[in-house]
Computed example of a mutant assay.
Amino acid sequence: MAAHTQDDGGARRGNRWRPLIWGAAGVALLLPLAAMRWFPASGVEWTRSDFAVMGALLFAACAAYELAAWLSASRAYRAAAGIAIATGFLTVWVNLAVGMIGDEGNPWNLLFVGVLGVGLVGALVARLRAGGMARAMLAVALAQAAVAVLALVAGADPRGAMFALGFAVPWLLSAVLFGKATRAAVRADARS
């Protein structure tokens, strides 16, 4: 495999989704501002710090996808990374806004920081290679499910626990897609 590629058997290429991704992030940041300005009855009341936190989250998510797109031209790899990044973003956003289990102050929600930590450590250990990322995303899905089941068994809000359990699905889908990227790279290497 050439030094400028990773797990995809092909050269890196540009991110043609860049304008859409960054544009959607900008629109997402402007929506609460528009709601506050033109629809005061909507109940949206963001502070400057709310906008700063959301801006930082959106920037981090978009930058992480840029890195994934730079690392691999594989559609499966990019889709897997996009799903993982979006799921991580939503996990943080939901927990900051309303809380996944109970309200945002519920201590069970702190465990989702650990779930995201499993993903970050797994990605570092995998060095962002598709095969290792597949295993890392599987570990994240299992950690997500474990927190949800433990919360349910401990008597936490069952609706919140089931909602949290549902977040294991996109993590699993990401693992499957990273696995697909790995198999495609192996086939490409075999043809070389």
Rank of each mutant, 00 (worst) to 15 (best):
L120A: 10
W108E: 05
I101Q: 09
W17C: 03
F167R: 10
L116Q: 12
V27C: 07
G43K: 06
E45C: 02
A11R: 02
V44H: 06
A188Y: 00
A97M: 12
W22Y: 08
G155Y: 10
A151V: 01
T47Y: 01
F167H: 12
W46Q: 12
G99L: 10
I83Q: 05
A154Y: 04
T182D: 08
A168L: 11
L142I: 10
Y77Q: 10
V113Q: 14
A175C: 13
V125G: 00
V169R: 08
F51K: 02
A184L: 11
T47C: 02
F89W: 08
A143T: 06
D103W: 09
G160I: 15
V140P: 01
C62I: 13
L173M: 15
V147L: 06
G10Q: 03
V149R: 01
L29E: 06
M137L: 03
A63E: 14
G82W: 07
W70L: 10
S192V: 02
A35H: 13
N109D: 09
R187A: 15
M54K: 03
C62S: 15
I101C: 05
K180R: 14
A130F: 01
V113S: 15
I21Q: 08
P158S: 09
R183L: 05
G88V: 01
S74Q: 06
P170T: 13
A130Q: 02
W171C: 10
M100C: 03
A76V: 06
V169D: 04
